[in-house]
Simulated assay, not measured.
Amino acid sequence: MYKIVKSRLHFSVVFFTILLIDVIVKNISEVSLFRIVTKTSLLLSLLLLALYHKSEQKKRNMFFLVSALICFWVGDILMLFYENVSLYFLAIFFFILGKLFYVFRLSTKKDFSMNRLVPYVFFGVSLMFIVYYLIYNGLCETSFFLVFLYFFAALKVFLFAILRKYAVVASSYNLVLLGVFFSFFSDTITALSSFSEINIPFSESAIMIFYGLSQFFIVIGVLEDKNICVFKKNCKSWS
Rank of each mutant, 00 (worst) to 15 (best):
E141V: 14
F184V: 05
V180W: 03
L106D: 03
V103T: 04
D225A: 00
K6V: 01
L177A: 02
A167H: 02
F81C: 07
A170N: 08
L213E: 03
P119A: 04
T188R: 08
I207G: 05
W238L: 13
V222L: 15
E30S: 10
F81G: 06
F64E: 01
L97R: 01
V103W: 04
F231R: 13
T40S: 14
Y120F: 09
V5S: 07
L42D: 02
G75P: 06
L192C: 09
S86H: 12
W238N: 15
S113I: 05
F93G: 01
A68T: 03
Y173K: 02
D111E: 14
M79R: 10
Y150W: 11
K109G: 09
S86E: 14
L43E: 07
S172V: 03
I228C: 08
S196H: 11
V147P: 04
L51D: 08
F15R: 06
S32P: 14
S143V: 10
A206Q: 13
F158P: 01
L146P: 05
F185S: 14
I135W: 09
K232I: 02
E56I: 03
S7K: 11
S41E: 00
F216V: 07
P201Q: 07
F93T: 13
L149G: 12
L163V: 00
Y88N: 10
L33F: 09
